[in-house]
Amino acid sequence: MQRSILWVLIAFLAVSCNQTVNKEGDNQEASKTEQIISATIVELLAAPADYQDKEVAVSGMVTHVCKHGGQKCFIVADDGETQIRIVPGGDIDEFKVEMEGSTIAFKGTFRVQTAVLAEEQLEDYESKEHHEEEQSHSSAEKAEYFLEAVDFKEVTQ
């Protein structure tokens, strides 16, 4: 029995070592430098075609984080009204509810949804978090524009 447990542990460690090599490869990939455009939420939404699929940096106060898995959050512009949806990308697994009320600077890719993406997002909207009443972020939730964030940093609290 001791021998068999030893084999299990050896197999486990062998697989783990292989994973470390892959991680190094990922890091090299991530180190590629790309040009990042700094923009406000209003600027992004005023001319979405100019920013489509480009790396952008945008900041704002987080008004809402999806409580069912943290797979989206919303930030509001300085006008206090315009909001944009942020979804996790890259190494970000989820957004924490603690982010609500904090001003966060996000870096990521500005996406304009295709028909396929829009359909997927609609399914997500209906299945993950559906509010009975219209919320201030509802239009941003259903909007065809969003930011796929790969990094974020709290600016103030």
Partner: peptide, 19 residues
């Protein structure tokens, strides 16, 4: 933390650990 107006009739005040 911060506050904002979701609409004309509501005020939302964000707190550490709630709102």
């Amino acid at each position: 933390k911060q506050y904002y107006f979701p609409n004309e009739d509501h005020l939302m005040i964000y707190l550490k650990g709630g709102h």
